[in-house]
């Protein structure tokens, strides 16, 4: 239902201002009766460096990461530093006006509430 649909260079709406590595952040996706919750690791991304868009049925997340060490020679270099990008196709009907997101310690949590129409409903059975 939810899948990695696009890679960065395919996205024409994505605005890149500088060259550099773009990484795919890891995400957990959770669903219950009321909402979809996406939890992603975006270390080094601050609140103002995030661009989250929900259009039609696609949720796109872009996090800018400024270089942290300029011109430095690493003795150990085990990971690269760069921007984060990922997009998901959301199959469920989402109430886009009620989407909320929070960022804490480099972890992004996005709540996508389902529209009333798709929420499961308990059907009362009337007996005689």
């Amino acid at each position: 239902m939810n899948q990695l649909s696009k890679l960065p260079q395919d996205n024409a709406t994505l605005e890149r201002t500088r060259a550099g590595a773009v990484f795919t952040p890891r995400f957990d996706i959770f669903e219950n009766a009321d909402e979809l919750v996406l939890v992603g690791d975006l270390p080094g991304v601050g609140k103002d460096d995030l661009d989250i868009r929900f259009e039609k049925d696609e949720l796109a997340i872009y996090g800018r990461v400024a270089p942290r060490q300029e011109q430095c020679e690493y003795l150990y270099s085990e990971y690269g530093i760069g921007d984060f990008y990922r997009a998901f196709t959301i199959g469920e009907a989402i109430d886009s006006s009620a989407i909320s997101a929070e960022l804490k310690n480099g972890v992004l949590t996005i709540h996508l509430p389902k529209t009333e129409a798709v929420k499961p409903r308990r059907i009362e059975v009337k007996g005689e």
Binding site: I29, E31, N32, A33, V39, T109
Partner: peptide
Amino acid sequence: PQYPQGSWHRRER
């Protein structure tokens, strides 16, 4: 993360 009732579609972290 702890979420009551529901299911995980993806666990990459």
